[in-house]
Design a protein around this nucleic acid. Structure first.
Lengths: 327, 327
DNA sequence: GTGAAAGCGCTAACAC
DNA sequence: GTGTTAGCGCTTTCAC
């Protein structure tokens, strides 16, 4: 397995200087087209591909974007990762993925570790206190996803209108007593979504039972089923789809059937919302746009500009878990 | 935003030479402990973290592992990614994630692009013909996941005993006519799983209806529901959990209820298998071990050894989608 | 045990 | 348009 080709080996075989080879790739317009073609051709023959780490050392730009997520296994993230990766590819950048495994203490260390290897960071850190997050991100260009902070450019999804639209739908179906399963106390999205439902309920004079903040895991949803039944609500807003799946599972164990006995609404429209039977009524997050906007904002940031926070709307998806309130 | 600390800035403030600082980090035992501690301390003060790209340039080792998956959104991959990332972290390596988006034509290009930035590759490419794959991976240390090839070290999950155990269970429950939803024709796992079921069925003298290879997407499972009903089978083995969810959805639309009318078995035990109601009977893939084994094999490879293919067993998970055959 | 110097592959002034 | 040179941050002989 022979040594990989470099601009030097190409330079030698073509009979030009290394800088010309370099330019042929990074500033094609600066080298005469006939020469450039010869260079590119032999580069291909030699199986050359530029060493971006070396380029990064020289330019200060690595061409890699770091993406930090709290938990790859949470179904919210794969579509987001996909979207970011797509957008990054369009900008000729690679994706370094970091999973902090829900440990905010690890985040600082992780960020420090990768700092020199990335141009910037796209970070989803729902729980870390703003102040800490700000410290963690000190000195590294970063855009934060699904969370709004004054000090950092962000990309968020506004689910308020969609949630309220679904709420209206529930109202039409006769639901007058609704349970709300709050997400994690410290999570921006949880607060935001809860407020949307609360505001609506107050305006509509609907009874809203707020169940205490939960970790947003399937098991938490399952565990909440008891309380939902006890609350005597006929419909429930879960913080996200995963919790919604959890309540459904828990309710089913208690002999309740969906949507006949209770209506359930999730949020995000992740894969399992679509694959469960019946499929879940939820709010669809614009993953592709979120990803693209994140990368765009980061690009802006790297260019020295100051991107504003981007807000993208969720879309209501009326599906099988919502039905008329039981008489 | 001041320039990041380097071994030089540390060297200056401590009053030693850059090489000593370098050694303090990469060969701690070579520098007197008192000095080393001073160096480490001021490094911390200055917020230093080593530039691994530079280190990579010097050593030829980047400290990053590339992971290529066909589709991050397929629920099989997030747990695998998580596991690989964990194992990589233990070895002090980062993860560069590449999603080929099911396009095998793109794979060559993607691999070439990242080749210089990674030490090696962990690749899940279920469909690319072996010969092509071998070419694509030419000259880059790689281990392949969930696929067995003579020319490449691999890590695979053997689901045969688990599937047959579940099949036995079905047999006890009275199932004598079983449908098999094959996965993608070119996929190693699909062939392997199909054989497991087929062999069992022949031995048990059970009627097996093999439905033509499908893409392993939810929609394909849904579309297969018709054929399942037409086949008059009382139980179905789906290629994977996603397809299983699909058939369930399709069957439910046709008025069939699970497991009363039909029993369904998936494979892999991805998140949605656990979150659906009823939860899916399936074979649990040892994600953590698969990830660790992949990284271990790659490490071996990088050390110049020739790792054998690792085979890890799946575990049967009897859950809610299997019941007695209808009389 | 520590320092000096060369080099990893590339880019970017600066010359020509 | 193209070549020369220095330097990005680090490791690694080779001296001392």
């Amino acid at each position: 397995m022979m040594r990989r080709a470099t601009i030097y080996s190409i330079a030698t075989t073509v009979g030009v200087s290394p800088s010309t080879v370099s330019r042929a790739f990074s500033r094609p317009e600066m080298v005469k087209s006939e020469l450039r073609e010869r260079i590119v051709a032999t580069a291909r023959d030699l199986g050359y591909s530029p060493n971006r780490a070396a380029r990064g050392l020289a330019t200060g730009r690595t061409g890699v974007i770091g993406m930090l997520v709290p938990d790859v296994e949470n179904p919210f993230f794969p579509p987001l990762i996909r979207a970011v990766q797509d957008a990054a590819r369009d900008k000729d950048a690679e994706l370094l993925l970091i999973d902090s495994e829900l440990s905010s203490t690890a985040e600082q260390e992780l960020v420090d570790r990768i700092r020199p290897q990335v141009d910037g960071l796209i970070i989803a850190s729902p729980r870390l206190p703003s102040k800490r997050l700000h410290e963690v991100l000190d000195g590294i260009p970063a855009v934060i996803v699904n969370r709004s902070m004054r000090s950092l450019p962000g990309v968020v999804c506004d689910n308020t209108p969609a949630l309220q639209e679904i709420a209206d739908h529930l109202h039409h179906l006769g639901h007058r007593r609704i349970a709300l399963l709050r997400g994690p106390r410290a999570a921006w999205a949880a607060t935001h979504r809860a407020k949307a439902v609360r505001t609506w309920a107050e305006a509509k004079d609907v009874e809203l039972i707020e169940l205490r903040p939960f970790e947003a895991q399937f098991a938490d949803g399952r565990a909440a089923a008891q309380q939902v039944v006890a609350s005597d609500a006929s419909a429930v807003f879960a913080f996200d789809d995963l919790m919604a799946a959890g309540v459904i599972s828990g309710l089913s164990e208690l002999g309740k059937s969906i949507p006949d006995d209770l209506s359930i609404v999730g949020c995000d429209d992740v894969l399992l919302a679509q694959t469960m039977t019946p499929s879940l009524t939820t709010v669809s997050a614009p993953f592709t746009e979120l990803g693209r906007a994140s990368v765009d904002s980061l690009t802006e940031l790297l260019a020295g500009n100051t991107p504003r926070t981007v807000t993208l709307p969720g879309t209501p998806m009326l599906r099988g878990t919502v039905g008329p309130a039981r008489a």
